[in-house]
Computed example of a mutant assay.
Amino acid sequence: MAVFGLLPHTPVVDVGVVLAATGAIWLGSGWLERAAEQLSSYYGLPAVVQGSIVVAVGSSFPELSSVVFAALAGVFDMGVGAIVGSAIFNVLAIPALSGLVADDTLETNRAVVYKEAQFYMIAVSALVITFALAVIYFPTDGGALSGVITRPLALLPLALYGLYLFIQWQDVSDHDAAADADDTPIGRRWLMLGASLLVILVAVEQLVGSVESLSGAFGIPEFLAGVTILAAATSLPDLLVSVRAARDGRSVTSLGNVLGSNTFDLLVAIPIGVLIVGSVVIDFATAVPMFGVLTLATVLLFAVLRTDLRLTSAESAFLLVSYLLFVSWVVAETVGVVSVIR
């Protein structure tokens, strides 16, 4: 049932829910961005920290929720697939669209390129190593490439995220912040942040349910829907926040949100799902090819950002074409043309 169980899932109802949820996410992401900017100004946070921590964690709530719900339902692989698909959408499609809406080019700096992007590469590697340790030390009886991720293993990526927060804290302590000219009470700023998270969470939950229903009604395979449609749906808050920031000339916040959101998803969202249910089974044969594509996508983003520390329109188009090639590969996997994922 759609709309909190009030209406049946029909194509007409689902399309209406998708449109209404998209509008609600647009509204909520605007509140989130405004609250994050006000709180960052109040606490004297640099723009890169604002994007990679405050905005990124807030806009990552849909991905966190999807992993928790998938783990509780016993389909953890689906939750991981949605996270990886969302991460690929984030590093290719969102910077591309942000660069295309920017006035001229999407400017960046060395903090984004050498800290955020490179630490994100470490996050991808750390999660692959965690999955490999599960296969080596806790193999399942059903297959040689399946393993059980236990709570102690889940603490490894969480510890790495603790290092990430420490690095951000060091940047905050070294930052010479300007005086806060906004007279909005701090309580109202936190209230706006909480309201934005609630609106985004409820809207994305309804959006994902309707997208799932539409994919079933039109015969779209679950794998294809998961790593493309659902991944893009849960990344909609990140997309709206980053595009709006790029359009307003805040390119560092725009790119910091993308990389910080992905770092949070990999190092926090997936481990929290494991900690809640105790242990989950991961299929290494499915996970590794997808993480390989994610690594390649991250390298592409790093390369285009490092050239002159800016993202041009041509480079944005290149990233967008790369994402369309990824979608084409997933479609080819689904229909059996290729079989890289086993």
Rank of each mutant, 00 (worst) to 15 (best):
Y43W: 13
T150Q: 00
L296C: 12
A144S: 12
A117D: 07
L106R: 02
Q50K: 13
R310K: 14
P237T: 01
P157A: 02
A245I: 00
L27M: 13
A96F: 01
V128T: 07
A2I: 12
D104R: 15
L319Y: 02
V281C: 00
N90H: 04
H9K: 11
G51E: 03
E37G: 13
E63G: 05
V91G: 02
V17H: 04
L214F: 07
S60I: 02
V204M: 06
V288G: 08
R310N: 11
F89A: 13
F166Q: 12
G74W: 00
F291Q: 02
F223A: 12
A245N: 04
A195N: 09
Q168L: 15
P11G: 04
A269V: 09
D174M: 12
S261P: 00
S254R: 05
P271A: 03
A246F: 04
I229G: 07
L224R: 07
E107W: 05
V277I: 07
V54N: 03
R34M: 14
E37V: 11
V49P: 03
L309K: 00
T234W: 06
V84C: 04
A178W: 11
F264T: 03
L153R: 01
R110C: 10
L201A: 14
I136F: 12
V113M: 07
K115R: 14
A126P: 09
D308S: 13
G79Y: 03
Y164D: 01
A303F: 14
V277D: 03
V3Q: 09
R247F: 15
L267R: 05
G249T: 06
S322K: 01
W31E: 07
G74N: 00
V84H: 01
Y114L: 15
Y323A: 02
L224W: 09
A297D: 01
L163N: 08
V252L: 12
T307G: 10
S316K: 03
A179H: 11
